[in-house]
Design a protein around this nucleic acid. Structure first.
Lengths: 238, 238
DNA sequence: GAGTGGTCTAGACCACCAG
DNA sequence: TGGTGGTCTAGACCACTCA
């Protein structure tokens, strides 16, 4: 034991392998497009099990650094695909992360048929029953986000009896209804008169808008459009 | 529960375990906050190795469905954290995905000291040498994106001799310089006079703007601000 | 202190696919 | 059709953390 080399003091972790491989890619030892040694060979070189190498390479593959194919082997990606992850969560958390006081208000609540433009978008019949909700979210009593939402009451009948005066529909839905698929879209839109009023700004001011549709096994659950206060920035590190 | 002999026809995959666990969470067998059985117990129940259960649960943990802690065990997340992934890649790919013809133009290129606001933002001295680039990206000859970029020429001296008239700085940098960290921010901004001219729109029109800073082991590499044509939507499914 | 997840090993079988 | 990655197993040790 005492004459063991320092390198073998710890068993080599998949993180070690990952770091070593990444270092060589960065150093252009394996330039973009190059073929890496096989898992077997790398395992031999690093003195670890193939499963360890496998996990390291799988991690790099998930990160978009390398591309793996059976038989052809592992190659360095020509253009690294870095994936930015956004945690789309609850507004309340967004606000509270800034150490601001969060406040929620239900603006309106009305059950009725699905509007035509939304029916087309969700691939629903035009008279499909929906619940239309409008809410405001405040940070330190300043407007933070205006939320306009339609909920498919056939998919989520329980929302008709839910008390949405205290807890927002976003949080209620997250806790009550799972979803299998979601689509989000971000854009810049000019404030119209109602938006300007709710967000206490002027008509025409650019607003960061986020739309989301969620489905539960093919059936649309809800559509929401979130319009943020002027100057809002959505950011992330990766 | 349903089939015993058929179930053993194939070895149980971690995907089977993942699906089964997810189904129970969705069915509220394990409601939000509930403690799941240990990996050992689940392995026994599913008739597989603990490593298989581990991989399944690790996947669910990565997806934000469950929360794992040593000793305390595995719990269902109160609020599922769904992570939307954006592949921040090259503009050219974005354009070509829409079956449009991509065109790139270098608008201006000037080496000089870092502007004060950027120096502050990047934590660089005010006179740090930078290369300032402005480019246009077109889709079917209609303005798609205006790119304004500063490159740290001390970190990337090679860019001073690179030919950026044909290939954009984005693609050039991706192929030439690795980065270890990045920060991106999205916002809605009103078009100013130059932007309106380049994007062929009116002053004040809301534009979807994306900023990114990249670092290589702590040293800032580049800052870029991409302003998109009016009506641009950035979307993803997850 | 003890229970739980985190990880590594050594070996094995399988699926896929380029030659 | 052989080589490569994908995965599972059975067992083991370790590290963190809660009681």
């Amino acid at each position: 034991m005492s004459d063991m080399r320092a390198a073998k003091a710890t068993r080599t972790s998949f993180l070690d392998v990952r770091a070593a491989v990444l270092a060589r890619i960065r150093a252009r030892v394996w330039p973009p497009g190059a073929l890496l040694p096989t898992e077997h060979d790398l395992a031999a070189e690093f003195g670890c099990a193939r499963a360890t190498v496998n996990r390291a390479l799988r991690a790099l593959s998930d990160e978009g650094v390398i591309d793996r194919k059976r038989k052809s082997g592992t190659r360095v990606r020509m253009v690294p695909v870095r994936k930015a992850k956004f945690e789309i969560s609850v507004v309340r958390h967004l606000v509270e992360e800034t150490n601001a006081t969060y406040r929620y208000a239900l603006v309106s609540r009305r059950a009725g048929p699905c509007p035509a433009w939304l029916a087309a978008r969700l691939d629903l019949p035009g008279d499909h029953p929906m619940l239309h909700l409008r809410c405001m979210h405040y940070a330190d009593n300043r407007p933070f986000q205006f939320e306009e939402r339609w909920v498919n009451t056939e998919a989520v009948p329980a929302i008709l009896t839910a008390d949405l005066s205290v807890i927002g529909p976003n949080e209620w839905l997250l806790g009550a209804v799972p979803f299998t698929d979601a689509e989000i879209a971000m854009s810049a839109e000019a404030a119209d008169a109602p938006l300007a009023e709710f967000l206490e700004t002027a008509v025409g001011v650019p607003l960061f808008q986020l739309e989301r549709i969620t489905w539960l096994q093919g059936a649309p659950v809800t559509f929401v459009r979130m319009s943020h206060h002027p100057g809002y920035r959505m950011s992330t590190r990766y």
